[in-house]
C-alpha cells in the first residue's frame, strides 16, 4: 500500500512537472513568435505614396501575371488578389496580396507567399515582387517597421 502511494506521488510529480515545462516552452514560443511576426510583417509589407486602391490592385494583378502566376481571386471590396503557380507537378505556390489604406496619403501592400501549406519567410521573393510592383507604379516602395 505504501509502495503504491509512493508510485502515485512520483507519477503526480512527473505529470505536474511536464505540465509546467510545457507551459514555460509555450510562453517562450509565444514571445518568439511575436518577434518573428514583426520581422515577417516588415518583409511582407511596403507602403506606397498613393491612395488609388483600384489602380494599385490592377497593378498587383499585372505584376503577378508578369511573374507567371495564374490569377485565382481578386476583389476590390476586400482589397485582395490571389495568384497561384505550379513549381512542379506536386508543389503549388500561392501568393495573396492585400491593399489597405495607411493614414490619409498612403496604401499598405502586404504579400503572403505560401508553398503548399507552408509560409515562405525568405525575404528575396518578397523583395523581387515589391521591386517589380514599384517599377510598374513608378512609385518608390517604403519599408514598413
Amino acid at each position: 500500500m505504501n509502495h503504491r502511494s509512493c508510485l502515485q506521488r512520483v507519477c503526480g510529480a512527473v505529470a505536474l512537472s511536464l505540465l509546467f515545462a510545457s507551459c514555460v516552452s509555450t510562453q517562450k514560443r509565444l514571445l518568439d513568435s511575436d518577434t518573428s511576426q514583426l520581422q515577417l510583417r516588415s518583409i511582407q509589407s511596403r507602403a506606397f505614396e498613393t491612395t488609388d486602391r483600384e489602380k494599385m490592385l490592377r497593378t498587383v494583378m499585372a505584376t503577378l501575371q508578369d511573374f507567371g502566376f495564374i490569377l485565382q481571386a481578386g476583389e476590390v471590396a476586400l482589397g485582395t488578389v490571389t495568384g497561384v503557380k505550379w513549381m512542379n507537378r506536386e508543389r503549388l505556390m500561392r501568393i495573396t496580396v492585400s491593399v489597405r489604406p495607411r493614414g490619409e496619403t498612403q496604401l499598405l501592400v502586404r504579400a503572403n507567399i505560401q508553398i503548399g501549406k507552408e509560409r515562405v519567410d525568405d525575404p528575396v521573393p518578397y523583395q523581387r515582387f515589391f521591386s517589380a510592383l514599384s517599377k510598374s507604379l513608378f512609385l518608390e516602395a517604403q519599408q514598413v517597421e
Binding site: D66, F67, G68, K85, M87, M93, I113, I115, V120, D122, V124, P125, R128, F129, A132
Partner: peptide, 16 residues
Amino acid sequence: TSKPADFFQPVTLQER
C-alpha cells in the same frame, strides 16, 4: 531544390 525566389523571374517582353 529550387528556391521560391527562382519563381519570381519576370516573363520576357516577347512573351508579354
